[in-house]
Write a protein that binds this DNA or RNA. Structure first.
Lengths: 121, 121
DNA sequence: TCCCGTTATTTCTGTGCGAACATAACGAAA
DNA sequence: TTTCGTTATGTTCGCACAGAAATAACGGGA
């Protein structure tokens, strides 16, 4: 458990097409996997359905195959889930996060030592 | 030499204060160190002086001490340079980049394999 | 047949951010 | 004193982007 106030390392993988996947889209994928719904995942993250849907559209366009498939209709049914590719991309991103946190710990701490801390009460 | 079109990994270190340092500010620091001028560094990066100056202001506010000191006046003289802290932060960021590239190579390649390539002629 | 929660899409609005422009202080050199 | 390139700061404008709201299609269940 690192101290809550410290700097946070964020990874972004930018493609030649000008798109990218970062913490936001990764979290969205995870919430879709957990809730089975684009709308519910968006609510969890405090974003509008339209924004969540747009991010999913971007993700699906970035990769050779869709990461999320959705189906309409049905009270209780109708929803979205990750494809195998989607689950794998999410998994790889989390692995990258974990590895980076370990490999770069020394430098992150060295920078953190010099960062001014936001006002302490 | 990785293939030119492949995804690029970008690191962003976000502080509790809502600020962050990423590829843009790191490059700006480097150009200031090389040119000795905020204005010249901004021109190199295709941004207005005001924007470059604003980024420098943000950087200086983020850390306990300024990363860039500037002096006015003088045709030929008058300019900016990195402080020891500034040089060290830049150095640490480049080390992070290098380490991340090595440590995450496997996952980056795995994701790259699934990324759709922008249209091929 | 009706209801409901979902996906999907359009339209409108505002607002935040950057670009562009303008201005001023500065200080060394000519 | 003038010139020149820099730092420093304010103002205005335009536009891309986000949010909100409305609408529609869908399909399972009651």
């Amino acid at each position: 458990m690192s101290q809550p106030g410290g700097p946070v390392l964020k990874l972004r993988l930018a493609t030649a097409g000008g798109e990218w996947i970062g913490p936001g889209k990764a979290d969205l994928l995870q919430h879709i996997a957990e809730t089975g719904s684009i709308a519910a995942a968006g609510r969890r993250m405090g974003m509008s359905y339209k924004r969540a849907w747009g991010l999913v559209e971007t993700l699906n366009a970035m990769f050779a195959g869709p990461l999320v498939v959705a189906s309409r209709g049905g009270a209780g049914r109708g929803g979205a889930e990750l494809t195998d590719d989607g689950a794998e991309i999410l998994r790889l991103y989390r692995v990258m996060q974990d590895k980076a946190e370990v490999a770069l710990e020394e430098e992150v701490l060295a920078i953190a030592r010099r960062v001014v801390e936001p006002k302490r009460k």
